[in-house]
Structures are given as C-alpha cells and as structure tokens.
C-alpha cells in the first residue's frame, strides 16, 4: 500500500451542495472531501442521491447552491468537458460504454483530451495490460460484450487520462456475484497503485472492505461519516446496510 504522508492535500471538496431535478430536491447541504491517495466511499440505498452527487461533481447536473472544488479550483458552473482535462476519470452508473464503437474507440474516447499522442498510446497499452481481455476484443463493438467486460471497459476508459481522481458510480449493479467480487478487486488494486478513488455504492459490505473512509447518504443528506472501521462498527449502519 502506498504511504500516505501526514499532510494530505485535498483533491475534491463539495461545500454545502444542493441539487434539484426540477422542483424535487435530490441533494440537501452535502459536504464531502477526498484527499490525495484516499479511497472514499459514499453509501446509500436506491434513490438516496448517490448518482446525483456524481453528476454534480462531473458537471452533468449543476448544483443550485454550494461549491465544488477540484485541486483547489472552483468547478461550479463550468461545463462537463473540462473535467477530464483536469484529471477526473468517470465510471458512470450502468457502465454506459459507447455501444456502437469498438473497444479501442471507446478507450480513445476516454483519452479524448490527451494532447500528446504518445501518452495516448502508452495509456492504451497500460489499459490492455490491466485488462488483457479488452486487448483480445479491441476490434469488437462494445455492445457485443458481456456486462462484466463492459464494466472493465468503462473502468479502462476512465483510466485513459491517468486520472488524479477516479469517480466510480456503482460498480456492483447488474453484475453476477462473481463479477462483483472481481470488480471490487480491480478497484482495490487500482487504489494500491496510488489512484485516488471516490466510489458511490449500494453494497456497503463490500465497499467498506476496500475503502479507507466513508459517508452515509440518506434521502439527499449526509447522515454519518467516519473511517471504514468506524462505520462497520456503527450499529445504525449495520442495521440499515450490512444486515445482521
């Protein structure tokens, strides 16, 4: 595991974020932060607002109030497409690979903002090294791949920019249990290679095993936070999310 220095810089900070879909409020005064090298998870049931947080961070849903800071820079109100250039890699809910592009084209889209051709080549090789399966299928249309393969592709696509922060929206939904385990192992491994990760996840049990720290999100509000161990030992969390 990578050593984390005493003075950890904040990579991402949300300050008092409110978000709405039309008139219905989806996030209410959400403040979170992620420091360099950390693996942070946000736990919550369906409809708690997990995907909304991700959309706010990615600029796909502008928050009504509050600020979003990335590496100290205020991103609130800036368009989504500046995110990859600044180093945010995004693995969306439900994978959302481009169905009618090949595996390699999907990866190239992940590195769309890389100015340097060599960096693109190098990261492509890196992605294939991490997921040899994708290399075998590089000429295949993404729609023809299995759910698990698409999940790997979605992760690899986000890695193409060598992200400073990897945002993952639900790694476990729609996958067979064996693939869920595999996916968690993959992101644990990425974290051990030094990548900072923010994962929003329904599967609290698995998420708390891999994350350093966590937040609990309930109907748009952060109700609890702590280290993974603290959350695992918390009675409410155990009752609500871990089962007894």
């Amino acid at each position: 595991m990578r050593l984390i220095s005493g003075r950890m810089r904040k990579v991402l900070k949300l300050e008092h974020v409110d978000a709405f879909y039309d008139r219905s409020q989806a996030l209410d005064d959400v403040s979170i932060e992620v420091r360099e090298g950390e693996f942070v998870t946000i736990l919550g049931a369906n409809g708690a607002g997990k995907t909304t947080i991700m959309k706010c961070i990615m600029g796909l849903l502008p928050p009504r109030n509050g600020r979003i800071l990335f590496g100290g820079e205020d991103l609130t109100g800036r368009p989504a497409w500046v995110r990859t250039e600044m180093g945010m890699g995004y693995v969306p809910e439900g994978r959302r690979v481009f169905p009618d592009l090949t595996v390699e084209e999907n990866l190239r889209m992940g590195g769309y903002n890389l100015k340097d051709h060599r960096a693109l080549r190098r990261n492509l090789e890196w992605a294939y090294e991490l997921f040899p399966r994708l290399k075998e299928r590089r000429k295949q249309l993404a729609r023809t791949m299995s759910g698990g393969e698409q999940q790997m592709l979605a992760i690899a696509r986000a890695l193409m920019i060598e992200p400073r922060l990897l945002l993952i929206d639900e790694i476990s939904t729609g996958l067979m249990p064996i693939l869920v385990n595999h996916s968690f192992n993959v992101i644990k491994d990425l974290h051990q290679r030094g990548i900072t990760i923010l994962l929003v996840e329904q599967n609290a049990n698995k998420a708390l095993k891999v994350a350093d720290r966590g937040y609990v999100l309930e109907i748009g509000r952060i109700t609890l936070q702590g280290t993974s161990r603290e959350l695992r030992d918390n009675e409410e969390v155990v009752k609500a999310y871990l089962g007894s």
Binding site: L60, A80, T84, Y90, P92, F98, N113
Partner: peptide
C-alpha cells in the same frame, strides 16, 4: 459518433 450514441457521457469524456 460518441455524441450521437450518448451525449451525456461524451460530455463527461471531454467532448465539447
């Protein structure tokens, strides 16, 4: 093509 297939994700990948 990416924008035609998934506008939101194309945006998130850095496409203006």
């Amino acid at each position: 093509k990416s924008t035609a297939q998934d506008l939101e994700i194309a945006k998130a990948m850095g496409v203006n």
